[in-house]
């Protein structure tokens, strides 16, 4: 997601091609070509410029809606609704982002498959890829990149991934899952949308409310103070209540794509692959 003003010109983009397996967009105002994954102008009058990233979140709708009750939601074009992959149930494979993580069976010494989903972090000139399968299994994952202590957290829904700095004032926090996740997630499920859908838009496949609760993302506890933290990065109880962790930008991506644009990336091995 990119801000589309460059040097005071407001640009609008269209797809124009593929470069190194990542799409290229052209702006209608200057005809410059931009690489989607890096936001860099690769040819044309604005070549060399970079689009400014707009912080965004890739999370399950339940979590987004709970955190932003007044959010607007893109409904798309009813003409194309047959082509959209919507109304997924837990475990579905959605377009490009899986509802559940594929089991890769990562073993010592084997390379990551091209199509493996990773969570990429870029910090202080270093890049590191965290295989989603490992993150989901080990969440919360505490690590250090370019000297910055970071936390990668896969929410209760098994879909949503966020990154935070573990540094708070002069302290570095370590996070653990609470002994009883359910008791501490602290939020009753909210009601699913009930209003009739737009004309032409299909209803989502509905599980029972118990099976697909509109829950928050779960909680973590920090080992240093015992405070409880919500998935939005805010301490909701304990000595640090009200404090916020700094969000770090993470990108869910395919390994081949991440590797192409971060050739010197490290790979998180979760203590299993050695290195």
């Amino acid at each position: 997601m990119w801000r589309s003003s460059v040097d005071g010109i407001e640009l609008t983009f269209q797809l124009v091609g593929i470069n190194n397996q990542n799409f290229v967009m052209a702006d209608r105002q200057t005809g410059t070509w931009w690489q989607q994954v890096t936001g860099e102008a690769i040819r044309g009058p604005l070549a060399g410029k970079r689009l400014e990233p707009l912080p965004w979140d890739e999370v399950g709708f339940a979590i987004w809606r709970r955190e932003h009750p007044r959010t607007q939601v893109l409904a798309g074009d009813p003409q194309h609704h047959d082509s959209y992959r919507l109304g997924l149930e837990a475990g579905d494979d959605s377009a490009g982002s899986r509802g559940s993580f594929p089991t890769l069976g990562l073993a010592a010494g084997t390379a990551l498959p091209e199509e493996a989903l990773i969570v990429g972090v870029e910090l202080g000139g270093s890049a590191k890829a965290y295989p989603l399968e490992l993150l989901a299994e080990q969440t919360p994952v505490g690590d250090t990149l370019s000297g910055e202590p970071l936390l990668l957290w896969v929410a209760e829904d098994g879909l949503s991934v966020r990154g935070f700095s573990r540094r708070l004032d002069d302290r570095v926090l370590d996070f653990v899952r609470p002994a009883d996740d359910r008791a501490l997630s602290g939020a009753e499920p909210i009601e699913p949308p009930t209003t009739a859908p737009l004309e032409g838009m299909p209803h989502a496949a509905r599980d029972s409310p118990e099976a697909t609760p509109w829950r928050a993302g779960g909680t973590l506890i920090d080992a240093q103070t015992g405070s409880t933290w919500s998935f939005s990065g805010e301490a909701i109880s304990g000595p640090l209540a009200g404090r916020r962790l700094e969000r770090l930008r993470v990108l869910k991506d395919y390994w081949f794509d991440w590797q192409a644009y971060n050739p010197r990336t490290a790979i998180y091995s979760g203590g299993r692959l050695g290195g």
């Binding site: 997601m1 939601v73 798309g76 837990a90 879909l159 699913p192 838009m201």
Partner: peptide, 20 residues
């Protein structure tokens, strides 16, 4: 086109969204 969250009946809790 956009709708309010409570009208987004075409989404399940498990649909990923890009939020801004």
């Amino acid at each position: 086109g956009f709708v309010a969250a409570h009208q987004a009946d075409f989404l399940s809790p498990h649909d990923l969204v890009l939020g801004v």
